[in-house]
């Protein structure tokens, strides 16, 4: 049985798709099924409002997530009302998401449910902590690699990445893109007791001096960097980019004299939008990039089928990825159809 024993070594796991239709939901359902077989109790939530029953991009129907009796879950007012599962309400949040308050509950029967969750990182951390207080065997987070999402899947201890033909129908490109993501996931963590403070910052560039004081560089966005490069290093060489890190920032910094002392800190790998080339040339010149939230990538799951019907060779894809990433790679649909 692939990776179920491994994931149970961690308290929390997020499942993140590199693209829509890469098999994230199948993967989650598979894990839930295996956990149920071992009588393990999961607790599940999602990042933001990803849980639409119809995929809004391709208009294909998304499989709903099926929960076993006694599982814990968090979802919004709106999705709680549409559930087909008996559930005991354990808590209701004071804060609201765009879909209403978040409801924490325990399943009292088998049934189906659409998930929604906290739209930002600090709240997600709190929700995970709350779920852990009910002593489940693991907390699962239905993650997202969305540009719009302020919730970070990296707050979980471990992660499974789903990728597939939906990301690219060209196998070489698919492997290359996935490998680049893996490089980002592996970036080192900047450990500090001011991490939570930094996570609460919503925009702008900030300097962190040697005594861990945070200074506003008054650059509200990396897109406004042009005029202010000179002031970037007023408080030292460590800079926190609270929003996205893109090519522009890296290209600007790469040509500075102190590049080899420069350390950029970002929230997590999902905030890096820079291309592979500019990232590599920044790192090659001695620049450092670290993340506040780091997670353990445990496995990659592939879906060789693209939503337009294009099908890649599952065996070959898994072999290529596994060799390139040095990680276990699974085709969940295939495993599930063989097992059941």
């Amino acid at each position: 049985m692939p990776f179920i024993d491994d994931i149970l070594k961690h308290k929390s796991l997020s499942i993140v798709g590199t693209e829509k239709n890469t098999g994230k939901t199948e993967c989650l359902n598979y894990i839930l099924k295996r956990l149920a077989e071992q009588n393990k109790i999961p607790a599940i939530t999602s990042i933001g409002i990803d849980g639409e029953s119809l995929d809004q991009v391709t208009n294909t129907r998304k499989p709903e997530i099926e929960l076993d009796c006694n599982s814990f879950f968090v979802t919004s007012d709106k999705h709680f009302a549409t559930k087909t599962i008996d559930a005991e309400i354990l808590n209701v949040s004071n804060r609201r998401t765009s879909l209403g308050r978040l409801i924490t509950a325990k399943a009292k029967s088998k049934g189906k449910l659409i998930f929604s969750g906290p739209p930002e990182t600090v709240w997600l951390k709190e929700i995970i902590a709350e779920l852990l207080s009910y002593n489940p065997d693991i907390v699962l987070v239905d993650g997202a690699l969305s540009r719009k999402s302020f919730g970070s899947p990296s707050v979980t201890e471990s992660m499974i990445l789903t990728t597939g033909a939906a990301l690219s129908a060209n196998m070489q490109t698919l492997v290359k893109k996935t490998a680049y993501l893996y490089d980002l996931i592996k970036l080192g963590q900047w450990k500090s007791d001011i991490a939570d403070t930094l996570l609460r910052i919503e925009s702008g560039l900030w300097a962190i001096d040697d005594s861990n004081n945070i200074h506003d560089l008054n650059i509200p966005s990396v897109f406004l960097l042009d005029k202010s490069v000179g002031n970037l290093f007023e408080y030292g060489n460590r800079i926190y980019v609270s929003g996205v890190l893109n090519d522009k920032v890296l290209d600007k910094l790469r040509v500075q004299a102190n590049i080899d002392k420069t350390e950029i800190i970002v929230r997590d790998f999902t905030r890096i939008f820079a291309g592979q080339n500019s990232l590599n040339s920044f790192l090659d010149k001695g620049g450092k990039i670290k993340v506040l939230l780091k997670t353990n990538l445990m496995a990659v799951c592939v879906n060789p089928l693209a939503p337009n019907g294009f099908l890649l060779d599952s065996e070959k894809l898994r072999a290529l990825l596994s060799q390139k990433l040095n990680l276990p790679v699974y085709d969940i649909k295939k495993i599930a159809s063989e097992e059941f």
Binding site: D86, A87, E88, I89, L90, A105, K106, K108
Partner: peptide
């Protein structure tokens, strides 16, 4: 609201 006298703050029917 606590017919089983369980003392928990949770609720369902």
């Amino acid at each position: 609201l606590d017919p089983d006298n369980a003392g928990e703050s949770s609720f369902y029917v």
